[in-house]
Design a binder for these strands. Structure first.
Lengths: 180, 180
DNA sequence: GTCTATAAGGAGATAGAC
DNA sequence: GTCTATCTCCTTATAGAC
């Protein structure tokens, strides 16, 4: 089995296991079993459990940042908040385990990977702030508004996918943006 | 030492430890040490680690629900969203460890205490939805909007307290409510 | 009602065969 | 590059003294 593929198997299994139990509650044994590889292979491909999850975190937020950028490119500034929100909801829906994992670990500030986490979170928050600013040239918009927008999307999206999955995505979008 | 007091010492220590490491990562040994009691006392006062955190969860969301109700009572319907948002920010600021804990565990659906968690979360989401509906009699507002409002407040509040603590609370409030 | 001591099993990580 | 076997420490929970 090629190394690149094994690494991907491991990170995907890590996401799946940690979405249920949290990073602390996810054991390397469980991850190895979910990935279908031996525990030794985890430690060949990653220096430690912390290094493994640092990569998971970077990948996860990176994927979200790319989706935001793509959605923003194709939209007028005033329409961009809705386009970006839609892209975010779709990305989170397509990576539900990752979304749960991010939501549960994003505000942890005292772990080895906390620096990488804050860098990744911040890059997404900045994107949201920029989109809001461009849509409302007059308003005073700081990164706190971006954090609020991000929180609104994450909160509504997980409420939707976990507890009210029958809603159409447009309805969720309307509810998130009802004031914008 | 009276039993009521010991229980409170334990729950407060549990919040403090779990805010850092998550519930899975918080050990009963750490909690006992932080509470200043022996581990045996934890198991005298609570049937298990899961039972302990079920009480922590119920207490936490109960406190938030009370603050929301109090803020709503004293405000006109159109001013209620801001009043409720302010009360929420103040409550979370006064219980930062609890806020971190709630944010990180609220979407966990496969734990023994998941039922209690969803009941508690839902009671808060319903309150937010009601406040928004009363403020905008014409609009179609579902509980998803309440979940989004809750998410926006939690996201902005933790961004504020953890990474931009110098902002005045009114400015945070303005950023969260900029579209409402 | 709170303590100490301990049981039984799971954790992260490593060594060495293949 | 992946495996199995193993080390050591930490985990939840219980038993029984005080």
């Amino acid at each position: 089995m090629a190394r690149g593929n094994t690494k991907r198997l491991i990170t995907e299994a890590a996401v799946q296991v940690a979405a249920q139990h949290g990073i602390s509650g996810a054991s390397m044994d469980q991850i190895a079993e979910a990935a279908g590889v031996a525990k030794g292979s985890l430690y060949y491909n990653f220096a430690s459990k912390d290094a493994l999850f640092e990569e998971v975190i970077r990948d996860g937020f990176g994927r979200l940042a790319e989706a935001i950028d793509a959605a923003r490119e194709g939209a007028e500034p005033t329409a961009a908040p809705r386009a970006v929100a839609a892209a975010t909801l779709e990305t989170l829906r397509g990576n539900l385990d990752l979304a749960k994992l991010m939501a549960s670990e994003v505000f942890r500030t005292d772990r080895p990977w906390a620096g990488a986490m804050e860098l990744a979170r911040s890059s997404v928050v900045v994107r949201f702030s920029d989109v809001l600013r461009a849509a409302r040239p007059g308003a005073e918009i700081t990164e706190t508004a971006g954090a609020a927008f991000f929180g609104a999307l994450a909160g509504a999206c997980l409420d939707w996918l976990l507890f009210r999955p029958d809603q159409p995505v447009d309805q969720v979008l309307d509810q998130v943006l009802f004031g914008i």
